[in-house]
Design a binder for these strands. Structure first.
Length: 259
DNA sequence: ATGGTGGGGATCCCA
């Protein structure tokens, strides 16, 4: 089973590019972030025509996540537990049943800039809630993965110019510590498990010719539970998507599971 | 130190 994650930065602007990539990559499941659309305006028929089941958790203008799956999406839940007052649409879960049942958690983790400030406080609090949710799922012992735009640069080798990010919410020590607290529950970071070399990125800013200079960062990640990591056979980044017509600033990352 | 680009949707916010 091929499961991909892609921050599309606006479904309306990205629909043609997203369709082309789906045709070519043929993921069984696609986890989308930043749909920037309310549920009612999401072009679900375009995906249903390709054989995908569609679940969205959207809001007006900002954020928004979605799941596309060729297999049925079961037990869908919207929103990250732990704060009833949180109105930002950044999290969705569903179970996909192939040879194994896998719980799919799609997330768009807050950016957090500027540091310090309320947006950074929200990011760290959100990561605390995500860790709590991971603990709950680990207790269930069903295979699960948490995938999406984490807005976290885990290590210096995950940025072309790490010195540019030392004061940024994506790379601050507190952010990386919160990331490690989640990973160290016993989750496997799929890309690092399958690829040792540096200079692999998933995001290049629209500004300053970042793509042309390969000034990228690796901030889109898959975290796998132990039972899910046992099924992992591959993890790759579709880098070339960034060089196409009307690209997102992110590119897809995907895992192959023996599930 | 500044502003560079892009999406959404409203004349500014977010990244």
């Amino acid at each position: 089973m091929k499961i991909a994650s892609f921050n599309i930065n606006g479904i309306k602007a990205r629909l043609p590019a997203l369709m082309d990539w789906l045709d070519e990559a043929q993921p069984d499941v696609a986890i989308l972030q930043e749909i920037k659309s309310i549920d009612e305006n999401f072009p679900r028929e375009a995906f249903e025509d390709k054989g995908y089941n569609v679940e969205t958790h959207g809001q007006k203008s900002f954020n928004g996540v979605a799941l596309l799956s060729k297999l049925p999406l079961e037990d869908v839940t919207h929103g990250l537990p732990g704060d009833a007052d949180d109105e930002q649409a950044r999290y969705i879960e569903a179970t996909v049943v192939g040879d194994h049942a896998v719980r799919i958690c799609g997330l768009y983790l807050p950016n957090g800039n500027p540091v310090p400030g309320p947006k950074y406080d929200y990011k760290l609090a959100w990561m605390d809630r995500l860790r709590t949710r991971a603990e709950e799922l680990l207790a269930d012992e069903m295979p699960f993965l948490m995938a999406g735009d984490y807005n976290i640069i885990p290590q210096p080798e995950d940025a072309a110019r790490p010195q540019d990010w030392v004061d940024d919410a994506l790379f601050r020590p507190e952010s990386r510590e919160a990331w490690r607290k989640i990973v160290n529950l016993g989750l496997t970071e799929a890309f690092r498990a399958r690829n040792q070399a540096s200079e692999h990125y998933t995001f290049w800013d629209f500004q300053r010719g970042a793509w042309q200079r390969n000034d990228g960062i690796r901030i889109d990640h898959f975290l796998l539970s132990p039972e899910c990591a046992d099924l992992l056979t591959d993890c790759q980044i579709d880098k070339d998507v960034r060089g196409r017509e009307k690209p997102s600033d992110h590119v897809p990352i995907w895992v192959e599971l023996a599930a």
